[in-house]
Design a protein around this nucleic acid. Structure first.
Length: 368
DNA sequence: CCTGACTCC
DNA sequence: CATGGGAGTCAGG
């Protein structure tokens, strides 16, 4: 645990210091121990000690490895373990978040005080925090999440033939991209190819560059560029849509979601390359992320209405961008499962089906 | 109050 | 030339 980690860090550093201070840590790593300076921070030009830097240094040195572990534990403790119990409302015995409906640029909701849209799930230790979220006695939690909703929206918007046929056939989209992009020889390591294809698929939605892909996959920029070229060679419709969307945004000055939500993108006409590049990535991402936000909002209304009309007492507890968490009496679970899937899948009719995964458990950790 | 770090989709 | 979209919270300074 944390105190043991702290001792080991002081020993590796050869001195005691405030581990939470990026400034002090930078001085220890790069001035006292003379580790290689891989990156400076953007605004202040100080030594970067971010995750990517520490991970690279951790290949050769002990201290950065310990710091990474310390930071993970410290964050989980301060943000969740220490903070959440104090926010239990004595009247209800529950934590109540605020959902903000006008805070984001794309139409997503945000959640605050506390943010229940960023409860840990990826790390083993972090996941344990989810097990503290439980339903009332006699009830169960139901989680319903849209499968690959943003890539399905991309398929719809771009009308790309390969993407559409993959989703219509119910294929694993990352596997399909792997088969489209990589050679027979490369595909012998199927798992690695799928992992890379997944990074590419998501990256496309964010306007990924060869440099960014190279960084993420730990490969050369040239190799990354050839993957991207291979992707666009197979997904011609996606390339055309990206180009068309940027061109149209440049002309009109705004982007629009499937349901008409507008986001002004003034920088798209900037002469500053940096500003304009950010604007172009925003212009392709916003209609995708924003349409997904539109769809789940429609789904929330449909689910709520349908639960009421069916005289069910199940309640929507949370929305986490592509997921709804519902609390239902055990006796209602089978009905609610079916109802939620249907209402979410029918919230919008696209050129590809919307698919929803439903899971049930007696706590939020065991739901997947 | 800003920055940089960590958490999520 | 810089280099993946959208958020919130925490600690340090």
């Amino acid at each position: 645990h944390q105190s043991e980690l702290t001792r080991r860090i002081y020993r590796a550093a050869g001195t005691e210091f405030n581990i939470n201070s990026a400034k002090q840590l930078g001085e220890i790593l790069f001035e006292k121990l003379n580790l290689p300076i891989l990156k400076k921070t953007r605004k202040t030009g100080s030594y970067s000690t971010d995750q990517a830097v520490l991970e690279e240094l951790a290949r050769e040195y002990e201290l950065p490895r310990l710091i990474l572990e310390y930071r993970q534990v410290a964050k989980l403790k301060s943000t969740y373990v220490d903070a959440l119990p104090a926010l239990i409302n004595p009247a209800t015995g529950r934590i109540h978040t605020s959902f903000n409906q006008t805070g984001t640029a794309t139409g997503r909701l945000s959640s605050s005080e506390p943010n229940l849209q960023n409860i840990p799930i990826r790390s083993e230790l972090g996941r344990l925090i989810r097990s503290a979220f439980v339903p009332e006695k006699g009830n169960l939690l139901i989680s319903a999440d849209y499968s690959q909703v943003e890539l399905r929206i991309l398929a719809h918007l771009s009308e790309d033939e390969v993407l559409i046929s993959a989703f219509q056939a119910g294929e694993d989209i990352h596997d399909r991209t792997a088969r489209e992009v990589f050679t027979e020889e490369e595909l012998k390591d199927r798992a690695e190819c799928r992992r890379r294809a997944k990074v590419i698929n998501f990256g496309i939605i964010y306007g990924l560059s060869a440099f960014g892909l190279a960084q993420t996959l730990g490969i050369s920029k040239e190799a990354a560029q050839s993957f991207i070229d291979a992707y666009f060679n197979r997904y011609r419709g996606v390339r055309a849509w990206l180009d068309r969307t940027i061109e149209e945004t440049r002309r009109t000055g705004y982007t629009k979601t499937l349901f008409g939500r507008i986001r002004p993108i003034p920088d798209i006409q900037s002469k500053d390359f940096n500003l304009r590049s950010f604007a172009e990535r925003t212009a392709v991402n916003s209609p995708i992320q924003g349409s997904a936000a539109d769809i789940i909002k429609i789904a929330m209304i449909r689910v709520h209405r349908s639960l009421r009309e069916s005289k069910l007492s199940a309640k929507i507890l949370l929305q986490v961008h592509d997921e709804l968490v519902i609390e239902a009496p055990e006796a209602e679970v089978e009905k609610v499962r079916k109802l939620v899937r249907e209402e979410m899948e029918k919230a919008a009719t696209l050129k590809v089906p919307l698919k929803v995964e439903v899971n049930v458990a007696d706590n939020w950790m065991d739901m997947k």
